[in-house]
């Protein structure tokens, strides 16, 4: 854990936290609320999990599922991502200009933000921690196949890998290929097969675990 609090305290007590340390204060109020049976650790963890993986990625998954079942919507999505995503009620800050890129048998797309961590928040929620790591930002461009392999995504040699650099102006969303064997599922159930990582492009749809906290 980082050394985050103010350093105006008596250094004779250097190894003793002050009651005013915010970390102490958070633990104190959390412990009292937990003891009172009002919340529990699982619920706290679930909130963090939800913000990191569920709220936004579920929106994106709905977009992908619609594109899988509705060829006209798919076309609109690929020609004007922002407008097509807005059709489903998603958009706004950090998603003003969306471009959707489609995975095919010949092309696999991967999204990165080389400068910082630009990310389509309205459709993917909060980014995973690795997305903003300097390592991912650099290696996704330099050696995308190696990065993909580390996520368990093996591509044939003849598949072209395209890396898209999201920015504050344009944010990219990958339209993954529909996994085999789920062609007959209704749209709502298809969305459950679309995880955040597939829409960033580091995994195939159906292979990523929705809710994985990385």
């Amino acid at each position: 854990m980082s050394h985050d609090h103010d350093h105006d305290h008596d250094h004779d007590r250097h190894h003793h936290p002050r009651p005013t340390d915010p970390a102490i204060r958070v633990e104190a109020i959390a412990s009292l609320l937990i003891e009172a049976g009002l919340i529990d650790e699982a619920r706290i963890d679930a909130v963090i999990e939800r913000y990191e993986t569920d709220i936004g990625p579920l929106n994106g998954a709905k977009v992908v599922a619609r594109a899988w079942v509705d060829p006209d919507y798919r076309q609109r999505l690929l020609s004007d991502g922002t407008a097509a995503i807005a059709e489903l009620g998603f958009g706004g800050a950090q998603g003003e200009k969306m471009v959707v890129v489609e995975n095919t048998d010949q092309v696999h797309n991967l999204v990165v933000c080389t400068l910082c961590s630009c990310y389509p928040w309205p459709v993917l929620g909060l980014p995973p921690s690795w997305y903003k790591s300097p390592e991912y930002r650099a290696r996704a461009v330099r050696e995308p196949r190696a990065v993909l392999r580390e996520f368990g995504t093996e591509l044939a040699d003849d598949v072209e890998v395209r890396v898209w650099d999201s920015s504050a102006e344009i944010r990219y969303l990958v339209l993954p290929q529909r996994p085999a064997g789920i062609e007959d599922l209704p749209e709502q159930e298809l969305a459950a097969h679309v995880g955040r990582d597939a829409m960033i492009g580091v995994r195939m749809a159906g292979s990523d675990q929705i809710g994985a906290n990385s």
Binding site: S2, E27, L33, R43, D45, A93, P122, K132
Partner: peptide, 21 residues
């Protein structure tokens, strides 16, 4: 760029406790 900024775990925990309530 669209993400909440937590510098340290106590910050995200404060947020999560509030949201849990």
């Amino acid at each position: 760029n669209g993400e909440l900024v937590f510098d340290t775990p106590w910050q995200s925990r404060a947020f999560a406790v509030t949201a849990a309530l």
